[in-house]
C-alpha cells in the first residue's frame, strides 16, 4: 500500500511537471516580443532575415547558441505576437524522468514455455536518468528505474493467483546510457539512445486457498541489459517533454527462489534473449 502510494506521488510529480510545461508553452505563445519587429514597407519584396548571432565557445553548464537549425525570423505585422525562442543548446547537467508502459517479448530462458510474456504481464515503469551533455549533441549518463505489473499469461500461475493472496511483478534496472540529439537547439529535438546495464524482476505469489493458506513463493531473476535502444522527440521549453519508444534487449543469468523457509539461487542453464518494449513520455530537466 505504501509502495503504491509512493508510485502515485511520483506519477503526480510527473504530471505536475508536464502541466507546468504545457502552461509554460502557452505563456511562450502569449509572451511579449523579444525581437524587433520589422515594420511593413511599401516594398513587396521579402524582408531579409536578421543576422544570426555568432556561436560562442562552449563552457561547462552554460547555454550555447546553436540556433543554426532554426528557421530564420521573418518580418511580422505590428501587433502580432512572436513565438518565444526555444532554449539555447546546453552542455553540462541533464536529468530525465521516463514513464509509460512496457511490454514483454522474447524468452526468459531456453526452457520450453518460459517466454517473458508467460512470466510477466505489461508493467508501468519509472526511470530516472542523470548525466552530462558532453557536447550539445551528446549526452552520457546513468539510469535507475523500477516497474510494477502483474504476473504473465502462464495458466498455472494464473490459477494460483485466482485464489486471493497477491500476485505481482516488480522490476529494477540500473545502467549507463548514451544519447545523441539531432537538433539540440531547436524547439523539437529528435534523439536516439543506447544503454547497457543490469536488471532484475521479482515475481511473487501468495495464495489464500483454504488448503494452502500461507503459501508464499518469490522468484528473483537477474540479468544483463545488453542493448537499450531508444528513440524519441522532445518539445523543448524550460523543461523538455516528449514521446519515446525503447527496446531493451537482455539476457537473464540466474534465478533465486524463495519458497517456504528455503532460498535457492541457481544459474540458468539455457539462457535466451528477451526484450522489454517501452512506449511512453519523458520529461527533461535542462533540455
Amino acid at each position: 500500500m505504501r509502495r503504491a502510494g509512493s508510485w502515485g506521488v511520483l506519477a503526480l510529480l510527473f504530471l505536475g511537471a508536464a502541466t507546468a510545461h504545457a502552461e509554460e508553452a502557452d505563456e511562450a505563445l502569449l509572451a511579449p516580443e523579444e525581437e524587433p519587429v520589422v515594420p511593413p514597407t511599401e516594398d513587396t519584396s521579402i524582408a531579409e532575415p536578421p543576422k544570426e548571432p555568432e556561436p560562442t565557445a562552449p563552457t561547462g553548464g552554460t547555454p550555447i547558441d546553436l540556433q543554426a537549425d532554426e528557421a530564420p525570423a521573418t518580418a511580422r505585422a505590428p501587433g502580432k505576437k512572436a513565438p518565444k525562442r526555444p532554449p539555447k543548446a546546453r552542455e553540462g547537467f541533464q536529468m530525465d524522468i521516463r514513464t509509460g508502459a512496457r511490454f514483454p517479448a522474447g524468452s526468459a530462458s531456453g526452457a520450453p514455455g518460459d517466454s517473458l510474456g508467460a512470466r510477466y504481464a505489461w508493467q508501468v515503469p519509472l526511470t530516472v536518468g542523470l548525466g552530462f551533455k558532453l557536447s550539445p549533441h551528446l549526452y552520457l549518463g546513468g539510469y535507475i528505474g523500477g516497474a510494477r505489473g502483474s504476473l504473465g499469461s502462464d495458466q498455472r500461475t494464473r490459477r494460483a493467483c485466482r485464489h486471493g493472496g497477491g500476485c505481482r511483478a516488480t522490476a529494477a534496472e540500473l545502467g549507463a546510457q548514451l544519447s545523441y540529439s539531432f537538433s539540440p537547439a531547436a524547439r523539437w529535438n529528435p534523439w536516439i539512445s543506447y544503454g547497457l546495464g543490469w536488471e532484475q524482476v521479482i515475481q511473487s505469489l501468495s495464495t489464500d486457498a483454504s488448503d494452502f493458506r500461507g503459501y508464499v513463493e518469490e522468484t528473483t531473476t537477474q540479468g544483463f541489459t545488453l542493448a537499450k535502444l531508444g528513440v524519441g522527440i522532445d518539445h523543448r521549453a524550460r523543461v523538455g517533454i516528449g514521446p519515446f519508444a525503447e527496446a531493451a534487449v537482455g539476457q537473464y543469468y540466474a534465478n533465486k527462489t524463495l519458497l517456504g523457509d528455503g532460498t535457492l539461487t541457481k544459474e540458468i542453464d539455457k539462457t535466451a534473449l528477451h526484450v522489454w518494449i517501452t512506449l511512453g513520455a519523458r520529461l527533461v530537466i535542462a533540455p
Partner: peptide
C-alpha cells in the same frame, strides 16, 4: 511444496 512460478527451483 513444488514451485508454481516459471523459473523457480527447489532443493531440499
Amino acid at each position: 511444496y513444488l514451485p508454481v512460478l516459471l523459473g523457480s527451483n527447489l532443493e531440499r
